[in-house]
Design a protein around this nucleic acid. Sequence first.
DNA 1: TAATACAGTGTACGCGTGTACGCTTAATTG
DNA 2: CAATTAAGCGTACACGCGTACACTGTATTA
Lengths: 211, 211
Amino acid sequence: MSGVRAQQKEKTRRLLIDAALSQLSAERSFSNLSLREVAKEAGLAPTSFYRHFTDMDELGLTLVDEAGLTLRQLMRQARQRIAKGGSVIQISVETFMELIESNGNVFRLLLRERSGTSAAFRAAVIREIRFFTMELCDYLQQANALDAEVAYMQANAAVTIVFSAGSDALDIDDKDERELLSKQTIQQLRFIARGAAELSDRRKAAKKSQK
Amino acid sequence: MSGVRAQQKEKTRRLLIDAALSQLSAERSFSNLSLREVAKEAGLAPTSFYRHFTDMDELGLTLVDEAGLTLRQLMRQARQRIAKGGSVIQISVETFMELIESNGNVFRLLLRERSGTSAAFRAAVIREIRFFTMELCDYLQQANALDAEVAYMQANAAVTIVFSAGSDALDIDDKDERELLSKQTIQQLRFIARGAAELSDRRKAAKKSQK
DNA sequence: TAATACAGTGTACGCGTGTACGCTTAATTG
DNA sequence: CAATTAAGCGTACACGCGTACACTGTATTA
């Protein structure tokens, strides 16, 4: 039941996925990648593509799924590092920046398709980012004992800032400049954390005095 | 010297620009707009396009320029409203959201080309956004007497948050939901403002005690 | 072992693309 | 008024695209 055939099929499917992923770059987005190019890179005849995906769109959604997976791995890695002690914000930003350096194209895929022309893609990307945001939200709420709504707004703002910084980092070659960007990003996240903590406190005080 | 001919040429040039602009939408980005389509929409033969632009890229850069102009108009309008009194942050966000509702496609152009595949486009968009950020930075520095570096980080974070909210707003039809988004954005900007003010104060205190 | 299912191939088609080239026609120039 | 300039047009070309269709060879099934 393992199936030599099914195994082979899965293998070529991966070949297609990897081919698409490997063709992404600063000057090449998924949406201007053609079915023929991907098939060729994978070493297949164009028409063989259809044995695995009905559409380039279907392949694209698979790619977005994989990118979401990468995002979750990032989260896990950051958590592990944080457990060993140190500034939460600093470790998170540094971990994120490492991801961007090693997986630039995956990250680019998310950034581009988030504002792309396919509603399905946009929805898929937004879903992944929301998931990421929610996980951060839970963490903030627990770790800092924040008001739920405040925690959400902080998580949301933080993710926005970090993703934007990541996008900028993709266009920076100079190492010192990247470091500067990281430092600024960390500072910006601290702004947000400070403002959020304060609002949360004020809300708690208001609730108490009402009782 | 006014030139009936030159005037006519300028008119058709605008026809092309407007044609391109009018074809932009949620499901149509500039980069998947063809020269022929634009020419057709403008009521011209495909080859006539070349009398005005060497390239679709050249047209695109012109569009980005126009978008930058729109951004500057926005700034001016917000300033006027602020002068009449009210919460600076609230008025700014509301003004921005109005722009997005009336000029969604112009805004989409900026968002998309910022992470697009053409280095020239990316540079042009980043330039416009930086200009916008710097103007806000000057304002913050003056109005709130902030440390220069802190003002920059605040301006940068604020623009990031507002643009991201704008991007989200483009996908929201429901009016109540938009209002909620606006409120959250305002709150997030206040987080940042609070954090920035505090850091600026701390820096000033440090400088004084050194003297 | 014979029949079947199916991954992968090769050919062929119509379509939309960018653009080279020569033409027309009217404003500009001398 | 004659010569020139230049905006806009029409034709024509090669190209890459998605995909329909009929095929081959091999793992799976009965």
